[in-house]
């Protein structure tokens, strides 16, 4: 597999100069704030997200978890009147630099959403190929290899290899979500953001996705928002606890550290209350 990947990358680089090969990178967030109009949804977050690790974001509903990760790939700003203050660094590049193209940012920081959202007009194959094709890759052989590789990595290949031309919507919810993961990793992001990827799935599909996350972190940095604390404990290396400010409502980062420490020995009493189920 290593050999395939390297050749693929070589071909990809040949095909378009700025091709992002799958290199895991970390994120450094500084004084990040997110607004919807005048409403401050996330306030003053400082956080270092480590490469090749899974970082879980937990917290009660409405505490700004989703808004926060949508700031990490500049998807927050596509909402009308939404804006971001502060800084997000991907290695040594400032994502919010005025000269930075948000499209390029989203190409290297992919996203998986709460509800599976395959493109309804496309087949299974076309869904995975869509990111490459719409970004201008024309080489059919390369696309075919990439689609297979991504579907294998998303642990979906064996289930769909005989029906690649079937509509994506014919798959079950759990398969659709793995298809969305395959679609995301097919464009070689260095970070993948997951916004409650299992909340619309049954327990078995959830387990498959969790196994997949453990596999993917060999090559990627993963940030996952979850409502399920067992899930955070199972899949993540680091955990961040967010909580809405009682007075102004803005989500704040209360505590961030290695998952084991957060769950066994939280420093902040609010974290302890949350993870022991006393509120939220």
């Amino acid at each position: 597999m290593d050999i395939t990947l390297t050749t693929l990358q070589a071909v990809a680089v040949e095909e378009r100069e700025e091709t992002v090969t799958r290199v895991s990178k970390g994120l450094v967030v500084e004084k990040l704030g997110a607004y919807y109009g005048n409403f401050l949804a996330v306030a003053d977050v400082d956080m270092t997200i480590r490469p090749n690790k899974v970082t879980a974001i937990i917290g009660p509903s409405g505490c700004g978890k989703s808004t926060f990760i949508r700031c990490l790939n500049r998807l927050h700003e596509v909402v009308r009147d939404a804006r971001v203050v502060g800084k997000v660094m991907l290695d040594d590049e400032d994502l919010y630099d005025p000269r930075m193209d948000p499209v390029a940012v989203r190409r290297s920081i992919g996203m998986v959403f709460q509800r599976p959202n395959p493109f309804p007009t496309m087949s299974i194959y076309d869904n995975v190929a869509s990111g490459l094709r719409l970004n201008g890759v024309r080489n059919r052989g390369l696309i075919a290899e990439k689609v297979e590789l991504s579907l294998r990595q998303a642990a979906l290949w064996d289930e769909v290899k005989d029906k690649l031309k079937k509509p994506a919507l014919a798959l079950s919810g759990g398969q659709q979500q793995r298809l969305c993961i395959a679609r995301t990793i097919a464009v070689d992001p260095s970070v993948v953001l997951m916004d409650e990827p299992c909340s619309a799935l049954d327990p078995i599909s959830t387990l498959k996705i969790e196994d997949l996350i453990a596999e993917l972190k060999q090559e990627l940095t993963i940030v996952i928002v979850t409502h399920n604390m067992q899930q955070a404990a199972r899949v993540s290396d680091y955990t961040a606890f967010f909580l809405g400010n009682e007075k102004v409502g803005a989500g704040e980062l209360i505590e961030y550290g290695p998952t084991r420490a957060i769950f066994t020995n939280p420093a902040d009493p609010r974290t302890e209350n949350y993870i022991t189920g006393r509120f939220g």
């Binding site: 790939n73 996203m111 959403f113 959202n117 990111g131 719409l134 970004n135 995301t184």
Partner: peptide
Amino acid sequence: EASLGLGVH
């Protein structure tokens, strides 16, 4: 959002 998230214009 799925499309924008893939880095598509």
